[in-house]
Design a protein around this nucleic acid. Sequence first.
DNA 1: GCTCACATGTAATCCGTTACATGATTCT
DNA 2: AGAATCATGTAACGGATTACATGTGAGC
Lengths: 187, 187
Amino acid sequence: MELGKTAYVILGMLGKGPKSGYEIKAKADISTRFFWAISYGQIYPELKRLEQAGLTVGEDEAGSGRGKRTYSITPAGRDALHAWLTDPGELHSELRHEGVLRFFFADSLAPQERVELLRAIRAKHERIQAELAAIEPGARAHQAETGDSLALLTLETGIAYQQFFVDLCDRLERRLADESDQTTGGD
Amino acid sequence: MELGKTAYVILGMLGKGPKSGYEIKAKADISTRFFWAISYGQIYPELKRLEQAGLTVGEDEAGSGRGKRTYSITPAGRDALHAWLTDPGELHSELRHEGVLRFFFADSLAPQERVELLRAIRAKHERIQAELAAIEPGARAHQAETGDSLALLTLETGIAYQQFFVDLCDRLERRLADESDQTTGGD
DNA sequence: GCTCACATGTAATCCGTTACATGATTCT
DNA sequence: AGAATCATGTAACGGATTACATGTGAGC
């Protein structure tokens, strides 16, 4: 029945409790988004497919506006989720990073332009890090409530990940400065 | 004329010297692949589009087998490349990391299964790091020849990036161990 | 003669984003 | 009354991978 990774994001979210498509998106936006983004265009069709496959069940919420539909995970859904979490096959991972890409091709740039590029990369990662830091208090409260420590641990991973790039840019900028010092004979 | 990022990978490669589609792929596979992957399915059609746009010129190589075609960057191509390298707009970056994704949802796993997940993530990054390390001698020789230090610097960035995940997995494994120590009352 | 590296290309398919359409409820 | 948020859904499009088709040249 071959589910895509995105299906597991949805299934995983429902594993933590029943949710609507809208709520799944909201939760994903403050957690998985930073290492696996999803959009409405995937969520709603996928929820239907998962229901047809018997991995989730949807229920129309009475009373509330225009048919809000809340989905829950089924036992079969939990099995599928567990099978994925422990699947010994390849862990897909890919990075598309325009900043590093540009840096790789930056030998045709003037030294000043290179530095500006590094600063721009740094600024971007700092901005995302600030976004993540803003989420932390909520995640901490969530851990206290539910006892789920992995969400917070993953968030901290995200913050450390951004920090890696900030440090990297600092290091590279210094390396470039050292290099041009040598070329110009120091002083 | 709105070029996609992949077009710039090709343009950037040609900026370092004339190449065939095949050669572009080979170079990308030992450099940009780790932060911006490309495939033949993109390269050949894109080379044609870039030629039509006047950013590259192709020339059929005489003598060699079934029409090998070598492309060079034009002055207009260099302008476009420079414009991209210094574009102050958003730097696209995205990560899809199944390992961290699974970890986020791993609260339903047994402690032993969690550790196995972390070990699998770690192993994968170590494997990629070894791949990168194998490329390094070639990159070092290339720098000595051409004076282009950024390719090597970028490769080292890739190695450090993999190391980040290796360290992360070690840290997380220790954190999980500490946690279960507390829960079981130590010993 | 066989296999491997070199070499080009396309078509099917998949995955995902973006933009759009629609409407209810809640807050100010 | 108006704005923001909640809420669902689809269609068009774009980007990229995969598989396939085809063929040459060099070395064993």
